[in-house]
């Protein structure tokens, strides 16, 4: 099951449509990281609304995506974790520490806008001609 990755402005949006195998998840990770570098995007949104279970492999893959994207200059936010899924995750001890999570796509976009805004403010005085 291929996960479609859409580009919206300076963000990449991966919306998972159905249950994923471990191989699908690994493939998503590789595809996203490749595209972050190619397109020099500033943010990545992974929409997991359609996932009805998240086990340790899925959570690890999402965490890896966030860390790798950060190394390549993009912020990641996970959106759409379902209430039941979130509860099962924390019972499993999987808390996605250090990875941003928000309610849905709209919130995800707002979060990235805020983040990139903050970063622009931080870098502006030093680098007036920074990549924008």
């Amino acid at each position: 099951m291929e996960v479609p990755i859409l580009r919206q402005g300076q963000y990449l949006i991966a919306s998972i449509q159905s249950a994923l195998t471990d191989a699908d998840l690994s493939h998503l990770r590789e595809a996203l990281i490749a595209q972050v570098g190619r397109s020099r995007c500033r943010g990545v949104i992974v929409d997991v609304t359609a996932l009805d279970v998240m086990d340790s492999f899925a959570v690890r893959t999402l965490r890896d995506i966030a860390h790798m994207a950060r190394l390549r200059g993009a912020e990641t936010v996970i959106v759409g974790i379902q209430p039941d899924v979130a509860f099962a995750m924390v019972q499993l001890g999987l808390t996605l520490k250090g990875v941003a999570t928000v309610l849905d796509l709209e919130e995800g976009l707002a979060f990235l806008n805020r983040r990139t805004e903050e970063r622009t403010f931080e870098t502006k005085p030093k680098k007036p001609s920074g990549r924008g």
Partner: peptide, 8 residues
């Protein structure tokens, strides 16, 4: 922790 996963 679970609330944070939902963004709250």
């Amino acid at each position: 922790e679970a609330s944070r996963l939902l963004g709250a």
